[in-house]
Design a protein around this nucleic acid. Structure first.
Lengths: 216, 216
DNA sequence: CCCGTAGCCTACTGGTGAGTAGGTCCTGGA
DNA sequence: TCCAGGACCTACTCACCAGTAGGCTACGGG
């Protein structure tokens, strides 16, 4: 066994394109999430992926394209995770709860994906943030729809729900980041904090009558 | 009058160091906020500042130092603006309201500062984010303190206020960004949306019994 | 057995931008 | 009047890294 073979992605040879593309994307997400878009070098990505640089260019294109591909893949996973968590048959108030839980579950399980999406993609101007903002927009719309559905199910007209959705999404992002630094807090707890804050408000929280999810 | 003289900062000569440093910082904030840390070039900053590159190095040091100096200055201004807005004699619930308003006022007036702080500084790892996170931490502590004060003034023990503060700060950041794209909404309105969300919760919002600030 | 093609590499180039060497010129004090 | 030092500049160097030229090898079909 040579020295090389004990290194990271045991440099297997002649894999089908599909597989290589996945390996490259995985490596790219890792490296981008660690160093940020600009400080990530294509050389490092190629090394982590166990592939030479020209392969990346051949399969995924230029650095921007590669980054965009990462964003697209991870953002799609996130949005799908949330949408999948929201079960349509549940009562509207519960749907928000399920969405929140799905969100935090995703963040807990895919920290690197989350870092890339939240920290990196947001801060780069240009084509990415459009891509990403589109996804964020979809998330916000999803939340917005939940809010509206809740409100109308209570028979009340709503206003400024978009802004509420934006605030809620922002609170979620911020809390998710905080959670990364406090991993001992269980996912359900974080989710219920946010649900309480957002549904009952601090005023009620302070009164001690907080909203508690039904046991599952 | 030469061609050069009609350009941006009418290239005045032999100004005292103090003044130059301010000009350079102003330029740096503009350029960083526009292009982001990495895409901002020292050459462009020097051009916008109306000064040659070596001056920047002589006065503010390397690119990292310069960026850190921007962060420090702007973050201090922001925190001071909020702290100044929170009037100590007001009742605790009102202090939160005043803090929110001061925050949104700052964002509205200092868009570039806000962009640098929120978008850029957060996403760069390393020394900056420490600097910035320190400031963000101070903001969170400030909010946390307000929450605790509110709660105890109601005679209720509190828990997980730190997480609440984090969520609230995140909601504020997100809403501030949204506001940048919807400048026609008055500052007071945005602030009251967030106050409502956070104080009464969506549940009450939906009931139509929202919290309305007293006219000033 | 030969050749097309798909997987894969080493070894380069060229641009960009951080950082600097080495000066000039002006002002104010001795 | 002279000189110290601070304001200020032009014109570089040099490293890093995105992106590429030009190959080589293994497999499958004819």
């Amino acid at each position: 066994m040579s020295v090389d073979e004990q290194r990271r992605p045991a440099r297997v040879k002649r894999l089908p394109r599909e597989v290589r593309e996945r390996q490259i994307l995985d490596a790219a997400v890792r490296v981008f999430s660690e160093h940020g878009y600009h400080n990530a070098s294509m050389d490092e990505i190629s090394e982590v992926a166990g592939v030479s640089k020209p392969m990346i260019y051949a399969y995924l294109g230029h650095k921007e394209d590669l980054f965009a591909a990462c964003i697209r893949r991870e953002a799609t996973l996130l949005v799908e995770a949330i949408a999948g968590g929201v079960r349509a048959e549940a009562p509207p108030d519960m749907q928000l709860w399920h969405g929140l839980r799905a969100f935090f579950r995703f963040v807990g399980e895919q920290r690197e994906s989350w870092r890339v999406l939240h920290r990196q993609a947001t801060s780069q101007g240009g084509p990415f943030s459009e891509e990403l903002m589109g996804m964020r927009g979809r998330a916000i719309n999803l939340v917005d729809a939940l809010l509206v559905r809740s409100a109308t199910s209570h028979g009340v007209p709503t206003k400024s729900t978009e802004a509420m959705a934006v605030a809620l999404v922002g609170a979620g992002e911020s809390l998710a980041d905080w959670w990364l630094d406090h991993p001992d807090v269980p996912e359900k707890t974080v989710a219920s904090w946010l649900m309480n804050l957002v549904w009952m408000g601090l005023g009620d929280l302070v009164d001690g009558t907080s909203w508690v999810p039904t046991p599952e």
